[in-house]
Nucleic acid binder design. Structure first.
Lengths: 241, 241
DNA sequence: CACCATCGGTGCGGTATCGCACATACATCA
DNA sequence: TGATGTATGTGCGATACCGCACCGATGGTG
């Protein structure tokens, strides 16, 4: 059964891999390893020298900044539209962030050295990765403004939408505690905000799993930040094939 | 007099230009134009297609995100360590941010097309710009967490330090209103925070100009965010010559 | 020198979020 | 079926920041 699941993936499930010209795809194919991404797995810690990069298929990875006092905030989300480990080709080899699997699934893993070689071939991989990086920058920047000016209610909506876009169904496996860590707020704050959404019939919550029932309303309740990031990503990133 | 001032600048006042190997520097030199950067000048608006890039010498430029309701927040600061217009070589040609001169001075201006050519030569310019971009990303991400978790008092200290690092003396020309816009808080909030610093003898405030009297204490009062960004920038960016 | 726009200081009620302390509900497993 | 741990709901007081209103001070300008 597990084998059947893994066999059902294809590198082009990831938008970056899928957008590469076939000759590049052929070159990389034997180097890609499909790996399981269990919930909570830490891909790298703040300051770690990165050894591999990951191209998600159906998993979601959060990039978190953690403060000295232990509080944290998510600065961006990566799903099958992107890649984890941009610091490698940017030249830094490490970043002050933590990458942690927020929704379980699979990803293609590639040796960092291989990615750097491909990047410095100056070909389509470079173009794709740079455009993706700009989309990521937009997401971080918008998160910064959002953290400053929008309510927890609005931010929860934004966050649900960001996650939803990276999954195939409308079912999230996610405790309120975890969401609170991502948003950098109290767990009780998430409880309250999620309660409102549940009363409105937008979501159905049940012990660690959320079903989104009314996505249009979720978009209405969200702050503009979701739409800004989405629009910019669509502009910058290749369409799925 | 004005001529004497302009004549006293050199491209290598900017760390990126200064770190280029001399043959690249020679190639670019005739293409660089020294321009005045008056306070408040908008280099580009959200969504504008960028025509030029700017390498600051002694000016400071803020990258701002502006929300629909008019409120705003600074997501990063650029001085002589960096460049304005990274979206050009990232491939997006535009970004959702606004770039505005926060401290008057001078910068070297270069046609965007020339920069892209140089970037795609795959040489040292590419390496420098990518590493600078990573430093910028760190600053944005840290700003996002800072906005979430730290007080206005702490953030004002961080902001003063970031500005101070990009100037030659400890005198900032800057109204509280302007600082409030950058931090995305009320003007009164800045008044209060600045009042505390003044009482402590850390700064002297006088009608649109701030003098920093006790930098070590300013660093102590600041949140960790300043140090994190500084450390990472020092790691990634070339030392001034 | 007098005017006036700009800048900074202060006070006050409103509110979102925090930190903490519990109470409740559910799921798993012995 | 009952015990236990984890997830969620609720109720407090404390507090940081907001929005608003207004005043005083300053420095440039006619």
């Amino acid at each position: 059964m597990r084998c059947a699941v893994t066999a059902s993936f294809n590198p082009s499930d990831n938008h970056i891999l899928g957008a590469l010209p076939s000759e590049v795809g052929q070159r990389l194919l034997p180097l890609l390893e499909l790996v399981r991404m269990p919930l909570g797995k830490v891909l790298y810690e703040s300051g770690d020298a990165l050894q591999h990069v990951y191209f998600p298929t159906n998993c979601i990875v959060s990039l978190l900044y953690v403060l000295e006092n232990g509080s944290s905030a998510e600065i961006s989300v990566v799903g099958n539209e992107g890649m984890i480990g941009i610091a490698l080709f940017m030249g830094g080899e490490s970043t002050p962030s933590r990458a942690i699997v927020q929704s379980a699934g699979y990803a293609y893993k590639l040796l960092g050295q291989r990615l750097k070689e491909e990047f410095h071939n100056n070909g389509s991989m470079q173009v794709l990765l740079l455009r993706y990086t700009q989309a990521l920058i937009t997401q971080m920047a918008q998160t910064a403004v959002c953290n400053r000016h929008h309510s927890v209610d609005q931010q929860l909506c934004r966050w649900l939408l960001l996650s939803l876009d990276r999954l195939k169904d409308n079912q999230l496996t996610m405790t309120q505690e975890l969401i609170a860590n991502m948003l950098g707020v109290r767990r009780e704050g998430v409880t309250e905000a999620a309660g409102k959404l549940q009363k409105l019939g937008v979501i159905a919550y049940h012990r660690g799993s959320i079903e989104v029932l009314d996505r249009p309303q979720l978009e209405q309740l969200s702050c503009e930040c979701y739409a800004v990031v989405k629009r910019e990503s669509d502009r910058l990133m290749p369409r799925p094939i």
